[in-house]
Amino acid sequence: MAPLTLKEEIILSCLLMLEGNSSGAPLRKKVIEISRKNIVYGTLYNHLETLIRKGYVTSTKSDPRPVQGGRSQTIYRITKEGTQALGETFRMHESIRKKIEDFESGI
């Protein structure tokens, strides 16, 4: 299983928080809210591409918008592998946190 970078972890977490699927704009908003840092669309799309390539996220098209020239939107969905990878990362974080607590109490 390919490891996740911090940004990818945040994006996956945000997707999970958005009930497992979202279009680009709400996802970006959530990412900014959680990380308290701005993220431009270019960066977000790059990370999403990587996540799609790793198989953690899939993208599907919604129906076109009902206006003249309206286009369909891309909906990003977290996959089972994505959820596992995120769980794995959390577990890793959890063990690290425990190690830190042990270390601090030992002192």
Partner: peptide, 15 residues
């Protein structure tokens, strides 16, 4: 075609 960039921009703009 992978991302709906224009739509995402529109949404963010309106918000």
């Amino acid at each position: 075609h992978h991302h709906s960039i224009v739509e995402d921009f529109e949404e963010t703009f309106q918000e």
